[in-house]
Computed example of a mutant assay.
Amino acid sequence: MGPLPNITIWIAGDSTVANGQTPCPAGWGGQLAALFDERVTVVNRAVGGRSVRTWLYHVQKVMDDTGECVLDRDASGEPVLQDRWAQMLDGMKQGDYLFIQFGINDGSPTCDRHVGLDAFKESYGMMARAAQERGARPVFVTPVSAIACNGGTARGTRGGYVTATQEAGEALGVPVIDLHELSVALYNSLQFCPVPGGDVSATTSGPVGEFFCDDHTHFARSGAAQIAGLVAGAIRDQNLGLAVYLK
């Protein structure tokens, strides 16, 4: 068996995944490269505020009669792709990985961010097939949970998009990292609940204030690093091929 090849991990996601330009917010995707050896390059194309469809396509502010947001289409009737996805596909090669995490902004009731559960799964399927056609391996990641409490116990917050991610993975034979469940378990292990004052705010101090920004969703850099650690741990625990590159 020869030496392991150099590979790229490509990441598509929202603000909880994005690199971030300041200490807060910072997404877990920006902390992932430090957990791999020098043979792995991480290209994080996650963008704040995006649903899977606003990340992929040019989306209009109006809904069609099926309840989905209208996509801009080219002369042949195909949806117009965002440059970030087109460039990612151009760079993807045999042995690479594509990590996908959405489902936080997709639940918006209005366009352009709204994505129904069936359309959500269809979009994941399109991305997975495109990666596989280039010899890359897709991995779906359920949306990381915000911090919310039932008394002294953290609870999940992402609803049907967690199940939709899992169903898409099962239907397509794509591995799924359940970051939603892992993040809730982490919040419980850190005893974040009950949150002082009932929510995370600019005045929240202590471990919760250090983990999150001044909201209930976005991470400070220290929190993002711990979430990235959950992703790396799942890669190892689920025996994904990528695990051989972990430090």
Score class of each variant (00 low, 15 high):
His114Arg: 15
Cys149Leu: 09
Arg50Ile: 01
Met92Arg: 05
Thr41Ile: 07
Phe36Met: 12
Val244Phe: 01
Gln191Arg: 11
Arg158Asp: 02
Tyr124Thr: 02
Pro3Tyr: 07
Asn150Gln: 14
Thr66Gln: 14
Asp96Trp: 09
Val141Gly: 00
Pro3Cys: 09
Tyr245Gly: 03
Glu78Trp: 07
Val59Lys: 08
Asp96Ser: 07
His180Lys: 03
Arg113Met: 11
Gln226Cys: 03
Gln60Phe: 02
Cys24Arg: 14
Thr165Pro: 04
Val184Pro: 02
Asn150Asp: 14
Lys61Arg: 11
Ser201Arg: 13
Gly20Ser: 08
Met1His: 13
Arg84Val: 13
Ile235Lys: 05
Met1Leu: 13
Arg50Leu: 10
Gln238Arg: 08
Ile235Glu: 10
Gly30Gln: 05
Ala148Leu: 11
Gly103Cys: 01
Trp28Met: 06
Glu210Cys: 01
Gly160Ile: 11
Gly241Ala: 14
Leu32Gln: 05
Cys69Ala: 02
Asn44Ala: 04
Trp55Asn: 01
Ile177Asp: 03
Thr54Lys: 06
Gly206Cys: 13
Thr54Arg: 09
Phe212Tyr: 15
Val42Thr: 10
Val184Tyr: 06
Cys24Val: 08
Pro143Ala: 07
Thr153Pro: 00
Thr203Gly: 02
Val43His: 06
Gly20Leu: 04
Trp55Phe: 15
Ile227Arg: 11
Glu133Trp: 04
Ser201Phe: 00
Arg39Asp: 10
Asn6Phe: 07
Trp28Ser: 11
Asp118Glu: 15
Ala130Pro: 06
Leu89Ile: 08
Ala75Pro: 01
Val208Gly: 07
Ala33Trp: 04
Glu68Val: 02
Ala86Val: 12
Val139Arg: 01
Arg129Pro: 01
Gln82Glu: 15
Thr66Lys: 13
Leu172Gly: 08
Ala75Arg: 06
Phe120Trp: 03
Gln94Met: 12
Gly173Gln: 09
Ser189Val: 00
Asp37Asn: 15
Asp106Leu: 05
Leu172Glu: 05
Ala119Glu: 12
Phe99Asn: 02
Arg50Lys: 15
Ala232Arg: 12
Ala185Pro: 02
Arg221Met: 02
Leu4Lys: 14
Thr153Val: 14
Thr16Pro: 04
Leu89Glu: 13
Val141Ile: 15
Ala202Pro: 00
Asp72Gly: 05
Ile227Gln: 08
Met127Trp: 11
Gly91Cys: 09
Ala33Gly: 04
Thr54Ala: 11
Gly160Asp: 12
Val139His: 02
Phe212Gly: 06
Pro109Cys: 05
Asp106Gly: 07
Ile235Trp: 07
Pro196Glu: 04
Ala146His: 10
Gly103Gln: 01
Thr41Pro: 07
Ile7Arg: 08
Gln132Ile: 13
His216Gly: 06
Arg50Asp: 13
His216Gln: 10
Gly27Ile: 02
Leu240Asn: 02
Arg158Pro: 00
Cys24Leu: 10
Pro175Lys: 01
Asn6Ile: 00
Gly125Lys: 07
Ala164Met: 05
Gly159Gln: 07
Asp214Pro: 09
Gly229Phe: 03
Gly209Lys: 09
Gly77Ser: 14
Asp237Ala: 15
Val200Met: 15
Leu98Phe: 11
Ala154Phe: 03
Val43Met: 11
Val141Arg: 00
Ala185Asp: 12
Val208Met: 05
Glu167Ser: 07
Gln60Lys: 15
Gly2Cys: 09
Arg236His: 09
Pro143Val: 04
Met88Ile: 04
Ala86Gln: 15
Pro5Asn: 07
Met63His: 05
Gly198Gln: 08
Leu242Arg: 04
Phe120Ile: 04
Gln101Gly: 09
